[in-house]
Amino acid sequence: MSDHETTKKEPKVAEKRPALYLAEYETPNAVAKAAMKVRDAGYKSWDCHTPYPLHGLDEAMGLAPTKIGVISFVCGLMGLIGGALLIQYANNWDYPIIIGGKPPGSFPSMVPILFECTVLLTGFGTLFGMLHLLKLPMHNHPIFESDRFAAATDDKYFISIEVADSKFDLTKTRALLESTNPSHLELVQEEVL
């Protein structure tokens, strides 16, 4: 405990450690070809960063199809069932009301609300499912330490390989990325807290 407090109070000289390699490419073709090389070298904790979704990169990176559809479907189903239970509970079990001589459970009058509940929950499921799969919001990431990375949302294409990858090696990974002819290659460091 006391250790922690003393280290915190010391005037900090930012100590840094490598976080990832960041290779920059000028064209979609260059980044896609590089991605195939990285994929074939067997890396797992790596990614491409592009200003817009590049079609064909899924395959070049060897990504499995996304599961988000399953999340949306399950949430939509919950909306459908939840909506039905809500209507039945409110207008049939808790406080039965007979309107227009129709039985409380009459199906046609339920359709619009069931539909809306299904859509609403599908939408929530898709939004939160997507954020979960993307691990967003995450406002802090070592990749932002790079000054050049701002171009990833403009007109440059990047590949990052993180130290977390079991195959990461300062020299070998560098050699691999250099062999893909990036226009720029850097080792991004993060501060050790």
């Binding site: 990614d47 491409c48 592009t50 990504l63 996304t66 599908t122 993307l134 932002f144």
Partner: peptide, 24 residues
Amino acid sequence: ALGWRGSHRGWQHYERAYLIFAGI
């Protein structure tokens, strides 16, 4: 921007999510 990094692993889910939103 929620910390968006233009990551392709992200784009993959994002594009499908966008399609689902269009679909619903």
